[in-house]
Amino acid sequence: MTDNDVAVVRTKPRSSGAPPEPAADAPAPKPERAKRGIGTTIRSRERWAALSFMSPWFLGLLAITVGPMVASFYLSFTDYSLGVGEWIGTENYERMLDDPRLAQSVKVTAIYTFVSVPLQLAAALGLALLLDRGLRGMSFYRSVFYLPSLLGASVAIAIMWRQVFGSEGLVNQVLALFGIQGQGWVSHPDYALGTLIILNVWTFGSPMIIFLAGLRQIPAMYYEAAKVDGAGVIRRFVNVTLPLLTPIIFFNLVLQIINSFQSFTQAFIVSSGKGGPADSTLFLTLYLYDQGFTKFNMGYASAIAWLLLAIIAIFTALNFLMSKFWVFYGDND
């Protein structure tokens, strides 16, 4: 079982983001050839069966995913609000260019993503390397490090964060033990985003688990060979571990960037839904919510949603383009 899982991780980076007929068809060919002679009735029965098995998904795809996507694109060219709306062309998109709060929210989201994701992955990789040494109690540590990423998305944790980084919160209480007078971190625009970044870094557990699975996959003989060549710990890391781990790093990077662009709950709770102080935690998603579901400018909000999608798509594409230069897929095919 474990072997199978890990193998999947390795092939995943190529099949997930840009799926060009992935491994889906790989196991199929043989039996197909064997049955071909029996005739078309079986095949058509199989098709009908497939249709029936797939029907919930098809319906969901149309009604919940693709339909709304098309509608959202259309709405972004209207001033739809509260049941009425008219076609206004590209006005929403033009308005974006001149909207200081939108610019602020893009900036906030970008800082959040590009600071927290590298830190989070560095922590995840670092801890994974430590844990991979096969020390006793390793599974206990792994559990402890993983727990925050399960809980991190909940409102309860955001509430806790708000207190922990408040002016009389846990952090300042601890600082006071060292004679340092802290301040209200969540209520200062220079630091509020920082507390959310720390929160995201805190949930490094799940990328860590993926790194662990990847590390487990590196054949010991590579290390032995490097050792024979006289490579020290650092050389072995740089020359063996890191290159062989690049597909996993890449995969985590893509995934975490996509996730952080969509963060909502934590900023919403910590700032009481306002994205404050002084718009310093106004994530794009918060601004979208504000426009779409409190001001009910659903046309404009749809345009913002497409901006978000475009940003995510561009960075994912960039990631894939850049991956050619640093991701090492080896010769495992």
Binding site: G166, S167, Q183, G184, S187, H188, S272, G276, P277
Partner: peptide
């Protein structure tokens, strides 16, 4: 008071 205390005041 200082600014961050004012912000906490509303919260």
């Amino acid at each position: 008071p200082e600014a961050s205390k004012v912000v906490e005041g509303y919260a």
